[in-house]
Design a protein around this nucleic acid. Structure first.
Lengths: 216, 216
DNA sequence: CGGCCATTTGAAGCATGTCAAATATCGTGG
DNA sequence: CCACGATATTTGACATGCTTCAAATGGCCG
């Protein structure tokens, strides 16, 4: 999103942050005064329940923007937390600088809106996954989503992509248990659809995977 | 959202629509050229699967805006359909008129953003419902969400509110079957938390309902 | 009154959860 | 470079929440 005007962007940058896997990037329910872009690594937006249960809302890939909410609304409190999945490099910006840079002209405003709507689509797609698909369809669909997002970033080579998610992460994103995610991944491997050699995943049969994602 | 400048709004209004229960307001995947406000009645945003399964993304109550996506993005195709739940009265606007009215000044832009973020929160809350709550917690939570939204609109009297949802609607919102929704509502009634006399619902024990929504 | 639609209820099956233990993997320090 | 501990994956047996399918009941509107 924010890549539309590199010059002005660089001027607005405040700090560069590096975090390790599983570290908290931003706590839930605390006012945000920074916007971040994810330069390297994966992260996620996650709701924590008091008793330890987690629900991952969406995964964030390189180039994604975190805390976009801070741009239009002052002192917005995120209803979720942000966590690193891998090692992560973040660029931090002051929302005010960005709101000038991104909202000043019509064109930037549209880019911004398109980005937010894209994120909304992701979450809604996840809703349909959890609500109306069996475990195997949901897992297949999640892999496809990540595959296609990474392909757009040119991060897929020969149908092989980085896949740093633990089975626990997949479970928390899809409302399953790690045990069942394990069995489901096994089934996808047995079907010859994917091949996992951590931290890489290769899609062996793209159409088959798509079929599995839609069926039942 | 759009209520911030009644005069200009009235000037932008194009048509008033009336629809009956279950009628389609806007088909999925077709470009949108209108923005609507829901004047009377309930509606929902819903994903239809080829095989008949449905996933309701969110419920829309009086005062809500439909197709906000058309304001910043031309020819946006909704990834979901819009359906009336009750009799419905809609006011239609041309996006261009609104983008002037709502995006011209800083203040209106913020209102717009705040509204989109609110909708996003709803969907994300629903995600947590489906993913990490038992049926009873999810149903309790949904009732609470609607109760609180209606209360803000001053549409709750003596803890009684309109409740035009069929059990099938609840099921499609929460990823359950009608049979199980029925048993779950029965359980909530037996617990003395709610009382249903269609199309009304009375909350008998607000704290108890909240406890049920969080527990387990 | 009759037909349609929604709710209610039952019995049986299955997908997924739960709990626990064994195995594999990885990062780290010796 | 190896050994260790911590963490993640894999697997099993069993429990259960939810689904499926079907039929009965109830409410509403023409």
């Amino acid at each position: 999103v924010l890549a539309s005007d590199p010059g002005r962007l660089a001027a607005a940058r405040r700090e560069v942050l590096r975090l390790r896997p599983h570290q908290l990037i931003w706590e839930a329910h605390t006012p945000i005064n920074r916007v971040f872009t994810l330069k390297e690594g994966w992260a996620c937006r996650v709701i924590q329940f008091p008793d330890g249960r987690r629900q991952i809302l969406s995964f964030l890939l390189p180039g994604d923007t975190l805390c976009v909410e801070a741009i239009p609304v002052d002192d917005y409190r995120l209803p979720y937390a942000l966590r690193a999945i891998t090692n992560v490099t973040l660029c931090a910006f002051a929302p005010d600088d960005l709101s000038e840079a991104t909202l000043a002209c019509q064109q930037h405003r549209k880019l911004f809106a398109r980005y937010v709507l894209g994120q909304l689509e992701l979450v809604q797609g996840r809703l349909a996954d959890i609500g109306r698909r069996r475990a195997i369809g949901a897992v297949a669909h999640l892999i496809l989503e990540l595959y296609e997002r990474l392909a757009k970033l040119d991060l897929v080579e020969g149908r092989e992509m980085a896949f740093p998610l633990r089975q626990e992460d997949i479970a928390d994103a899809l409302g399953l248990t790690t045990a069942h995610v394990n069995r489901t991944l096994l089934k996808l491997r047995r079907l010859g659809l994917i091949e996992v050699s951590p931290p890489k995943l290769r899609v062996l049969n793209l159409d088959g995977l798509r079929r599995e994602a839609l069926s039942n």
